[in-house]
Design a protein around this nucleic acid. Sequence first.
DNA 1: TAGATTGTTAATCGATTAACAATC
DNA 2: TAGATTGTTAATCGATTAACAATC
Lengths: 210, 210
Amino acid sequence: MEKKASNITVQALQRMPYYLHCLEQARDNGIKTISATSIANELKLNDVLVRKDIAAVSSTQGKPKAGFPVDELILDIIDYMGYNDKKDAIIVGAGSLGRALLGNHEFEGYGLSLVAAFDIKPELIGKEISGIPVYHISELEAFCSEHRVPIGIITTPPDVAQGIADTFCRVGIMAIWNFALTRLDVPEGVLVQNENLASSLAMLSHHITK
Amino acid sequence: MEKKASNITVQALQRMPYYLHCLEQARDNGIKTISATSIANELKLNDVLVRKDIAAVSSTQGKPKAGFPVDELILDIIDYMGYNDKKDAIIVGAGSLGRALLGNHEFEGYGLSLVAAFDIKPELIGKEISGIPVYHISELEAFCSEHRVPIGIITTPPDVAQGIADTFCRVGIMAIWNFALTRLDVPEGVLVQNENLASSLAMLSHHITK
DNA sequence: TAGATTGTTAATCGATTAACAATC
DNA sequence: TAGATTGTTAATCGATTAACAATC
């Protein structure tokens, strides 16, 4: 299935969950057809922007005067984003943040399935957190070779993050969700998505302090 | 203390925690002076970009050939970001994400102090989570009027987020950290920082699915 | 001095927005 | 038909990068 492919921008991709939520809300209200303009108003975005984003993922063209069929567009986004494909993920670092992610079942709706956690603390090894087994970090490589995990999540202190990332790349992980405050060095083709709570906090802090 | 003020960009602000971490690492290695170029290399950023960012927060000019004094620059960033000022925050929604934030003591290093949580579930009210008391949502307004809290965190389902935000604005909260998948409508002057785990996941999911 | 590094001004690049013709 | 809405092409805007003179 040749996709006309990744000529979609990062920004557009990040807006997709908002569109999806907006559409699901519309559907739940019994709305059958929706215009890009009304989505734009709802989300406080420019209408041309929304139209372009939708054009990138929609399987059909919109109809002038009417807009887009809600149900169809929902399916298109879910399909485009791959939310229906189950994607296994492992998490390294079972500290407070790691445990929070393990306990957050919201991710399942997006196709993410947490299958194992890794840590170094002896008291955690062999236990389960929210039903997910915790292994010693030394077992990471063997586990990945055996299970072909496509996604790795890093919730460790920054100084060990690069080492974990290296291991991830070696065992064929294709996408890394990095919660550590480090820029990771990875080979071409591996995606690093940095999640910076500290950077977000920086915004708040600066606004308050100003 | 008139700051030459917010002519700093959002992007620059978000890079600050990275600079800070990089500088602290340098300091711990006994380095006294550091060039923008070497910071840029370390963080894989353009050197002119780093120089501009630093210029926005540094109290001194860099010295050609030498660069910037590490200790001083650390203090400048901490001061600029207000990490030394304790900022009270409340959190609404004590679900799994909310609890994770309550248990995450990392934020204290950035001056954020969680003082109370609010929820509607009867079984949580009156309890403490990670030492922070949980109140019923109906007490939110009274609490805020009494305590002058500058920061509010929303970790509720999206459909109630706007209502919480309205209450926040009414009681004088100046910055909202929004983990709900909604665009919040707030008056001029109130900052909304959206934290979209779903948007980040969208990146990973799309990369894997492609 | 020579060279690394600084700070500034101009060029580039890419995302967003505006303008507009096409269509149900 | 008239008008809302579409999709496309061109203009704008702002962040990043390049070029370069100044300086320790």
